[in-house]
Design a protein around this nucleic acid. Sequence first.
DNA 1: TGAAAACATGAACAAATGCTCATATGAAAG
DNA 2: CTTTCATATGAGCATTTGTTCATGTTTTCA
Lengths: 120, 120
Amino acid sequence: MSADNKHAEICDAPDTHTDVVELVRNTMPDDELLYDLADLFKVFGDTTRIRILYALEREMCVCDIAEVLGMTQSAISHQLKTLKQSKLVKSRREGKTVFYSLDDDHVRDIIDRGIEHITE
Amino acid sequence: MSADNKHAEICDAPDTHTDVVELVRNTMPDDELLYDLADLFKVFGDTTRIRILYALEREMCVCDIAEVLGMTQSAISHQLKTLKQSKLVKSRREGKTVFYSLDDDHVRDIIDRGIEHITE
DNA sequence: TGAAAACATGAACAAATGCTCATATGAAAG
DNA sequence: CTTTCATATGAGCATTTGTTCATGTTTTCA
């Protein structure tokens, strides 16, 4: 909690900079949380996965998703695994086919915020 | 608008699948929008950039950000460029130093939604 | 004008990532 | 039990990406 002056390492700045650095350091969330957060957004950061999430406004089976996106069943399956691990989609088995849908409302929420930013 | 039966290409599914595929296809946003959206989230999908955004709750100069994160000035500068191109941060010059801050409220909004999802 | 400080940028390299191809798993039908 | 359909998964490969290192810009001050 002591203010160990690291001023020398910082740019040739007025003393306020040192204060700001210390202050911001203390108000930053745990690195673990920020790491998980980046990992979550990384999942949204791919065109295929975003398109899958949009398609899943309605529950769909794997091969139909592949059909909608015009992509391989394998490619879709791989991405669905990623999406499921991040708890963005859930699955339900019915015989041979597996139906996927959005896991909760957060998903659409996050996407909508992104669209807001883009189309402002 | 005609329902050109692509049933053969789809999994051995009841006719409803074909309908769903067509329906979802028509309700999907333009690929360009989805591409831009993925690009936006891609920017959030990196630990360094997320940490920078958190640090910028207060306006800071480049070298102070580098100090807070314990990283090179060059690395930070590169990432700030990415963040600026996505309109997530803005900059203001004051003599030799350049101060960065969040561009608008959407940024913190999007991040908060992400945290909600993680810490649920 | 010349040097130093703060920042920006280009090239290069290592690490992460997404798709493809082949194959494995699991369920239903014959 | 064997086959077939829907899906899952592992390895391989090409592309993307983040950092480092060296250098370029811009501003200030002597």
